[in-house]
Amino acid sequence: MKVKFLSIIFFLISLSQVLAQDFEVAPVTLYFNANPGESQSKVVTIKNHSSEKKSFILSSTDFEITTDGEKRYRPANSTKNSIASWLSISPAFFDLEPNAERQVTVSVQPPTDDDGSRWGAIFVRTTEEKTTFESDAKLSAGITISPRIAIQVYQTAKSNKNLKAKIDQLREIPSEDSTERWFSAIVTNLSDIIIHCKVFLIASNMQTAKEHQYPPVQFDSYPKNTQKIILKMPKGLPKGTYALAAVLDYGSNVNLEGTQMVIQVPK
């Protein structure tokens, strides 16, 4: 009975993986660096892997970033840094035969007086026409929306070099892994553009001056946004007192930022 149950579970998992691959989108992240008034375009390829003809619709949407770095989708043009009004998609609706593919052009044109960062997403969905009897009255034209793939879209003018960020509030937090010690810190983006950040954790023995550096945490920091990051240090340092530093690197032409605390490593 147990074997039969497991077989059913594996079948359902396999089935979900097949259904999830009815269509493919590439790439799923677009980075633009158009200067004010300049237009830039990129191409996205959509492939229909199903055995049936499919109709596709592409629509823009906004997203916000929480302090934990999670994305929360919002309606287009509803957030301060929405890219939706700068964005054009061609074509935004089309049909694809089985195993066929179509290229879609995504263009961004910021206004002449704005060199700040904007971001958002494009949802790619398949649609299924329904009869009038089947259609829900709340759905326009009898179309129901299927599962979607999101294309992340980012724009930062290449002429804007005014980067500014800080890191502080380094502290130890409970670890969910018995082989590691976990620490948190707060990174604040003080500029008007998206900044790619790397944060290194460095432990320096205060008696011997020997340093231990750990792989960085990498992430995008959004304008005027504060984000909590988690830094992990494997257990196993020699016994002693350590100066622990979280060092923020967010560009080759700016100074490093850091925050520090003292920790004890027992036997």
Score class of each variant (00 low, 15 high):
1 M>N: 14
4 K>S: 14
5 F>T: 13
8 I>H: 00
10 F>I: 14
11 F>E: 11
12 L>R: 12
17 Q>K: 09
18 V>P: 04
24 E>W: 09
28 V>H: 00
29 T>Y: 01
32 F>W: 01
33 N>K: 13
34 A>Q: 10
38 E>S: 05
40 Q>D: 09
41 S>W: 00
42 K>Y: 03
45 T>L: 09
48 N>C: 10
54 K>F: 03
55 S>K: 08
58 L>K: 04
65 I>L: 10
69 G>C: 04
73 Y>F: 10
74 R>Q: 13
79 T>R: 05
82 S>A: 02
83 I>L: 03
90 S>T: 10
91 P>S: 12
92 A>I: 07
99 N>H: 14
104 V>Q: 04
104 V>H: 01
108 V>F: 01
110 P>D: 00
112 T>Y: 05
113 D>C: 02
115 D>G: 09
115 D>V: 02
117 S>T: 11
117 S>G: 14
118 R>Y: 01
123 F>I: 04
126 T>R: 01
129 E>T: 07
132 T>H: 03
137 A>K: 07
141 A>N: 07
141 A>S: 13
142 G>Q: 05
148 R>D: 11
149 I>V: 15
149 I>N: 08
154 Y>P: 02
154 Y>A: 08
155 Q>N: 12
157 A>E: 13
158 K>C: 11
164 K>G: 02
166 K>P: 01
178 S>N: 07
182 W>K: 10
183 F>P: 03
183 F>Q: 07
187 V>A: 14
187 V>H: 02
188 T>P: 06
197 C>I: 02
198 K>N: 04
202 I>K: 09
204 S>K: 15
208 T>C: 09
209 A>M: 12
212 H>R: 10
214 Y>K: 12
216 P>Y: 02
217 V>R: 04
218 Q>I: 06
220 D>T: 00
222 Y>D: 06
228 K>M: 14
230 I>M: 14
231 L>T: 13
239 K>M: 12
241 T>L: 15
243 A>R: 15
245 A>W: 11
246 A>N: 05
251 G>S: 06
251 G>C: 04
253 N>L: 08
255 N>P: 00
256 L>M: 06
258 G>V: 02
260 Q>A: 13
261 M>H: 08
262 V>R: 05
263 I>D: 04
265 V>M: 10
265 V>I: 15
265 V>N: 09
266 P>D: 15
